[in-house]
């Protein structure tokens, strides 16, 4: 019996439903590298910047509230901001990243979006 005509999409390859997804298997076609580039194009980094006013404890509080981070992880990011001037908090699709940035702005933190590269 012929496989169904719907496609199953999985990062970097697609196959007929029911067919194995491993690259090189019958029914599987590898997508060109441009697909990977398109995926990267859709991923944005949420960056938070150092500020001489926001208290360290407040920044940890905000990271926990906005991202649901553990205290340990939130502290690690806060110290990175303090020492390096910035910290990459998360990478996700643009819409979601904008939501995170707007929430950080609501709390008074300086945050920006950067397109992920490489």
């Amino acid at each position: 019996m012929l496989p169904a005509t719907t496609f199953v999409i999985d990062s970097g390859s697609f196959a007929f439903a029911g067919a194995p997804l491993a690259s090189g298997e019958p029914g599987t076609v590898s997508l060109p590298d441009t697909e990977t580039d398109t995926r990267l194009d859709r991923i944005w980094n949420v960056i938070v910047w150092d500020d001489p006013i926001n208290l360290m404890a407040y920044v940890v509080y905000v990271f926990q509230k906005v991202f649901g981070m553990s205290e340990q992880l939130a502290t690690r990011h806060m110290l990175e901001v303090h020492k390096e001037g910035r910290s990459l908090l998360t990478s996700c699709e643009r819409e979601k990243a904008e939501l995170f940035v707007s929430r950080l702005h609501r709390y008074g933190l300086q945050a920006t979006l950067e397109k992920q590269t490489g």
């Binding site: 208290l55 360290m56 404890a57 940890v60 509080y61 502290t75 806060m78 110290l79 020492k83």
Partner: peptide, 10 residues
């Protein structure tokens, strides 16, 4: 709230 500043100062 339990976010004591001294704990976070390097």
């Amino acid at each position: 709230l339990g976010f004591v500043q001294e704990r976070y100062i390097p």
